[in-house]
């Protein structure tokens, strides 16, 4: 029965007072109101906050119900509201990022476990066999049965460094899956990044370029990857992401080796790579770290390229990216992105 007489609130970014209250409430539950959330729902009894939940794109998170209000169906109310809001925003495939203790509650609500890290986090989705179907589809496109390798790249944008890494990996492998991060949080949009990888690796015949979907390095599997500040959660997020790779991608695609570019600059990626060297071998997957290709004695990286683009040093960029990427940068769409990098308003 529901005669609790609670008041519903939907938080806007401007509502600092209520945001503060939600933040403090979550903190008591060992959570925090994360930076990236774009929709927060709260239930208030009189003047006290008793339940809340948030949405970040297609991920439900920061869900908490006060101890003395549990078992009154408030979690269902919160989740319903979030699912509804997500659906209105055109997002039907949803994920929940929560504590393992809540697994049963969300399973009852029609969510399916993807991966749990003992006493840390559990990730669920609302599609039965969602991840398996996703990886199986990749498998179907590959038409390859033997032992394969994989590399996961963001390519913001695709450089000679990425090209070199993929060429090396392809040469050493019978077949190589190139998985391009789908999450649209980089300056270069996901579809552009994917296209540039495809074009720049067109000469390689034993590879398949595919998107990672929501299942690798996404705001669902690795939320802290996209946060500006480095958070303490990075290590457990990285572990979750790698466990998903090892438990779904590797067995279905028969991956025995994962390639990764050496990471001299970005500490976050470095944490990820180090974690990779611990976790994947325990599943019998070899991690091969390829040293970066250098130009003028400096390892080529996408951030270097972005820096040059920002300063309009296009001639120098030309030496660091494949011809296909350079050609794209010269198009109207490419210029648009360069303007965005410069912080200019795109010209209409």
């Amino acid at each position: 029965m529901d005669y609790l007489g609670l008041t519903e609130y939907i938080l806007t970014r401007e509502d600092q007072k209520l945001r503060g209250a939600v933040g403090a409430f979550l903190q008591k539950q060992g959570l925090r109101l994360e930076e990236g959330v774009d929709y927060t729902y709260a239930l208030v009894d009189g003047k006290e906050l008793v339940a809340t939940g948030s949405l970040e794109k297609n991920v439900i998170k920061c869900v908490a119900v006060r101890q003395d209000y549990q078992n009154m169906g408030l979690t269902n109310k919160v989740i319903s509201q979030l699912v509804y809001a997500a659906h209105k925003g055109g997002k039907e495939h949803l994920f929940i990022y929560t504590k393992p203790g809540n697994l049963q509650i969300f399973t009852d609500l029609g969510f399916y476990k993807i991966m749990a890290l003992a006493d840390k986090v559990v990730l669920l989705e609302n599609k039965r066999d969602g991840i398996r179907d996703f990886v199986r589809q990749i498998k179907q496109k590959a038409c390859f049965e033997g032992r394969a390798s994989a590399v996961v790249v963001n390519c913001n944008p695709f450089t000679l460094g990425h090209q070199y890494l993929i060429e090396q990996a392809a040469e050493e492998s019978e077949f190589l899956y190139v998985l391009v991060v789908s999450e649209d949080k980089s300056v270069f949009p996901a579809d552009v990044r994917l296209k540039l990888v495809q074009e720049g690796t067109d000469h390689l015949k034993n590879i398949l370029v595919q998107e990672t979907g929501s299942y690798l390095i996404s705001s669902a599997t690795f939320p802290s990857y996209f946060l500006k500040e480095e958070s303490v959660a990075v290590s457990s997020h990285a572990a979750l992401d790698l466990e998903i790779f090892a438990n779904y991608f590797a067995p279905i695609l028969n991956i025995s080796r994962r390639y990764v570019g050496e990471e001299p600059y970005c500490s976050l990626t470095n944490v990820y790579n180090e974690k990779m060297k611990v976790i994947l071998p325990s599943y019998g997957i070899v991690v091969r770290e390829i040293p970066r290709r250098e130009a003028v004695q400096q390892a080529i990286s996408a951030s270097w390229v972005r820096g040059l683009l920002k300063e309009n040093r296009l001639e120098e960029v030309k030496a660091l990216v494949p011809e296909t990427t350079y050609r794209f940068l010269m198009t109207e769409e490419g210029r648009h992105i360069i303007d965005k990098l410069k912080g200019l308003r795109p010209m209409l």
Partner: peptide
């Protein structure tokens, strides 16, 4: 695509 209902008890989403 459209949605109606909730996940609350006695309801259907």
């Amino acid at each position: 695509s459209a949605m109606a209902g909730t996940l609350e008890s006695s309801d259907a989403s």
